[in-house]
Simulated assay, not measured.
Amino acid sequence: MSQPKLSFQPKLSFQNVSRRFGEGDKSFLALDRLNLDIADGEFVTVVGPSGCGKSTAMNIAAGLMDVSDGKVLVDGRPVSGPGPERGVIFQQYALFPWLTVRQNVEFGLRIKGLPASERRRISDHFIGLVGLRDFADALPKTLSGGMKQRCAIARAYAVDPTMLLMDEPFGALDALTRVHMQDQLLDTWSRERRTVFFITHDVDEAVYLANRVIVMAARPGRLHKIIPVNLPAERNEDVRLSKEFTEIRNQVWHSVYHQKPQVEA
């Protein structure tokens, strides 16, 4: 997972993006002139103090929220709403409880009007990719938290997005399941190579997954620091326990938790 070089045209570009909520004396600035370019195929994690605008930035990139100023580009085109090239995965699994794993994964394919045979071929591939082949006909209520999130990831991949926007997708999982899900996600990413914008509060997770860690400043949200993750492409337990991992983790930790509070200008 070597650090990719940005092409002439970034896959995702935040250009002087600001977002204000509310009006008058009760308004507040959540994002303040965010500038960030992310390369095609890059895995970027985003960390920062609570309320620093991480989720706001992702929602804007997903087309679920407008900017107050600036613009966000995907493949050089302004974001004006949700699009099939951007798959969104939240901490809540958002599965349809009355549909099986396969039916959930095929939901977007059905909306696209694909024939049953093609839906089956695609769902078979991604259900297998996330390790749920034996649970294809199971309802979400019978699945563990990790399995539900794997189903959500398979559903996002199935509609063939070029980018995944993920907001704390493993935040509700226990520690061991979380580690397994991180490895599963990296394995899937290494084979499918989508661009990933991944928000987390977990510094270890941020370092383990990323090509680069984006550290946001306290509210109003600004770009505080970009930290390259120069670790072996194949991430495993040995990498987690390495001196190099610890050094990068400490750098990210200090960048997040030793910030001086910002005041709005």
Rank of each mutant, 00 (worst) to 15 (best):
Q91T: 06
D25E: 12
F14P: 05
N59L: 12
Q3K: 12
Q103S: 06
G87R: 07
Q182V: 02
R86S: 05
H224T: 07
F198G: 07
R133V: 13
S18I: 11
E85Q: 13
A233N: 07
G70E: 15
N250P: 01
K243N: 03
D204Q: 05
V215H: 01
R212P: 10
K225Y: 04
V17A: 08
V229Q: 01
T200M: 11
E85G: 02
R102K: 12
A57G: 13
R235C: 05
G63R: 00
R212E: 04
G113I: 04
D187T: 12
M216G: 01
F107D: 05
K148V: 02
R193A: 02
L12M: 01
E42H: 08
S18T: 11
V105S: 00
M166H: 12
R86G: 03
S68K: 09
M166C: 14
K54T: 00
A233H: 08
V179P: 01
M147C: 11
D66I: 03
G221C: 09
S242C: 11
L73S: 08
F107M: 10
S117W: 05
R191I: 00
S242L: 08
R240D: 02
G146E: 09
Q259D: 07
G53I: 12
V196D: 00
E168K: 06
R33W: 04
I214K: 11
Y157I: 10
Q103K: 12
F14I: 08
C52A: 13
N16A: 06
T142S: 04
V207L: 04
D183A: 15
Q9F: 02
H254W: 06
P261S: 06
M58T: 08
A172I: 07
K112Q: 11
G171H: 13
C52R: 12
A62W: 00
K141D: 14
R33Q: 15
I60T: 02
T100P: 01
R121A: 15
E205C: 00
L31I: 10
D124A: 01
G41A: 01
A30M: 14
R150Y: 14
M1C: 09
G51C: 08
L143D: 06
G87D: 03
S80E: 15
V239M: 08
V252K: 06
I38G: 03
L34R: 06
G221W: 13
V159A: 04
M163T: 15
T142L: 05
F197C: 00
F245A: 04
P82Q: 05
Y257I: 05
S242D: 07
L31T: 07
V46R: 10
T56D: 02
A116I: 13
S242W: 07
D204N: 04
L129E: 04
V203F: 04
H201G: 09
E205T: 06
Q251H: 14
D174W: 08
D174Y: 09
R133L: 14
Q92H: 11
T195R: 05
A265S: 15
H258I: 01
G87L: 06
N250L: 07
G171N: 11
I226Q: 14
R19V: 15
